[in-house]
C-alpha cells in the first residue's frame, strides 16, 4: 500500500543539504552582484573597512526585518515596529538619564537591568495591545498596527516633545560602536537573535503553529489549537524584537528620539518578501531573510563606495525585488515550453 521512494531518515537528510529555490536564487544574485561590484570597485569593496562598515549597518534593519517577518509568516503585518522600537528606546533612555548611572558596579548593573526592563516592558504592552486587537477583536493586522503605530509614536512625541534624549553609560556606547575580536557587537547581537529565531520558527511547536495558521487559520483552530493565543504571541514577539532593534539604534546613535529609523518600516517588508517570505503567510525562512539582507546591504555599500547617493540604493532595492519577481515569472513561463523533468 505504502509507496515511498526514500526511507524517512534519508529523505530528511537529503533535504537538509538542498537549499530552497529562494536561497539558491538569492545566492546567485549575490554572486552576480559581487562580481559586478568587484569589477567596478576592486579591492575597495573587499577590504576590512568596507566589510566592517557593512557589518555595523546591517543589524538594525535585520532585526527590524525579523520583527516584521514573524507577523508576515502568520499572514499578518506589523506596521508599529519602528514606533515601538523608539518608544522602548526612549523608556530605556529615560531610566539612564533620569536616575543617573554612577556609583558602585552593582548599582550600575542594576540600572542597566532597569533600563532593559523598561524597554521590554513598554514593547510587551504594545505587542499585547496589537495581538489582542488582532486576535480577539478580529481587526485586520494592517489597520490595527497602523493605529498603534500612530498612537505609540504619538506617545513618544508627546512625552519628549519631539526632542532627543542623549548621553548614555559607556557600556551602551560599546554595544553600539564597539567590536569584539574585530567583530562588531551589533552583529554579534544580531547573530545571537537570528539563530534562535530560526530555530524557534522551524523547530518548535510555536513556530509550526505560526506557519500553519499563516496558511489557514481556521483549519489550525479546528485542530485544537488556540489560534488567538498564538497570534498574541506573534505580535508580542514582534514588539520585543523591535525593542532590541530600538536599543541597538539608541546605542549606535548614543541618543533616542521618537522618529528614528522611520524609513526602515516599508523596507523591512521589501527585504522579507525578497527573502522568500510569502506576504500572504505560511512560508519563509530566517536564512532567506538573512541572505536578502546581505544582498541589500551589498548594494547599499557599493553605492556608498561608488560615491552615489544612498537614495539610489533605495531605488535599486525596490528594483531588485521587482526584478527577481519578474525573472521568476519569466522562468515559470519558460518552463511551460521546456520538456518536463522526470519525477525523481
Amino acid at each position: 500500500m505504502v509507496t515511498y521512494t526514500a526511507p524517512p531518515a534519508r529523505a530528511a537528510a537529503a533535504r537538509l543539504w538542498k537549499p530552497g529555490p529562494v536561497l539558491l536564487r538569492l545566492t546567485v544574485l549575490f554572486l552576480l552582484l559581487m562580481f559586478l561590484f568587484g569589477v567596478l570597485l576592486g579591492h575597495r569593496l573587499f577590504n576590512g573597512a568596507a566589510i566592517r562598515s557593512m557589518a555595523f549597518q546591517l543589524p538594525e534593519l535585520a532585526i527590524f526585518s525579523l520583527a516584521m517577518m514573524v507577523p508576515l509568516l502568520s499572514g499578518g503585518l506589523d506596521l508599529s515596529i519602528i514606533a515601538t522600537a523608539n518608544l522602548s528606546a526612549l523608556a530605556a533612555a529615560f531610566v539612564f538619564t533620569h536616575f543617573g548611572v554612577s556609583g558602585s558596579d552593582a548599582s550600575v548593573l542594576l540600572w542597566h537591568i532597569a533600563a532593559l526592563v523598561a524597554a521590554f516592558g513598554v514593547a510587551a504592552m504594545v505587542g499585547l495591545l496589537n495581538g489582542t486587537v488582532i486576535a480577539y477583536l478580529g481587526v485586520s493586522p494592517i489597520l490595527a498596527t497602523l493605529g498603534t503605530m500612530t498612537m505609540v509614536k504619538g506617545i513618544a512625541v508627546g512625552l519628549t516633545h519631539g526632542g532627543v534624549i542623549a548621553g548614555f553609560p559607556p557600556f551602551m556606547v560599546f554595544i553600539g560602536n564597539g567590536s569584539i575580536l574585530g567583530v562588531p557587537v551589533v552583529l554579534l547581537v544580531f547573530a545571537v537573535i537570528a539563530i534562535p529565531m530560526g530555530v524557534l520558527l522551524t523547530r518548535t511547536p510555536f513556530g509550526q503553529r505560526v506557519t500553519m495558521l499563516g496558511s489557514n487559520l481556521q483549519a489550525v483552530r479546528y485542530s485544537g489549537i488556540d489560534t488567538r493565543r498564538v497570534l498574541v504571541r506573534v505580535y508580542l514577539l514582534s514588539a520585543l524584537l523591535s525593542a532590541v532593534a530600538g536599543l541597538l539604534m539608541m546605542a549606535r546613535f548614543n541618543s533616542a528620539n521618537a522618529a528614528y529609523g522611520e524609513s526602515y518600516l516599508l523596507i523591512t517588508i521589501l527585504a522579507a518578501v525578497l527573502g522568500g517570505i510569502d506576504p500572504a503567510g505560511g512560508f519563509g525562512k530566517v536564512s532567506g531573510l538573512v541572505m536578502s539582507l546581505i544582498v541589500l546591504q551589498l548594494v547599499s555599500t557599493a553605492a556608498n563606495l561608488l560615491n552615489v547617493s544612498q537614495f539610489l540604493s533605495l531605488a535599486l532595492w525596490g528594483a531588485i525585488l521587482l526584478g527577481v519577481a519578474g525573472i521568476g515569472r519569466v522562468w515559470a513561463w519558460a518552463r511551460l515550453f521546456l520538456p518536463a523533468r522526470k519525477p525523481s
Partner: peptide
C-alpha cells in the same frame, strides 16, 4: 505634540 497620539487612538478605536 499630543495630536498624533489622539489620532492613533481614534484610528484604533474606530477599526
Amino acid at each position: 505634540y499630543w495630536s498624533e497620539c489622539f489620532t492613533g487612538a481614534v484610528i484604533l478605536i474606530a477599526v
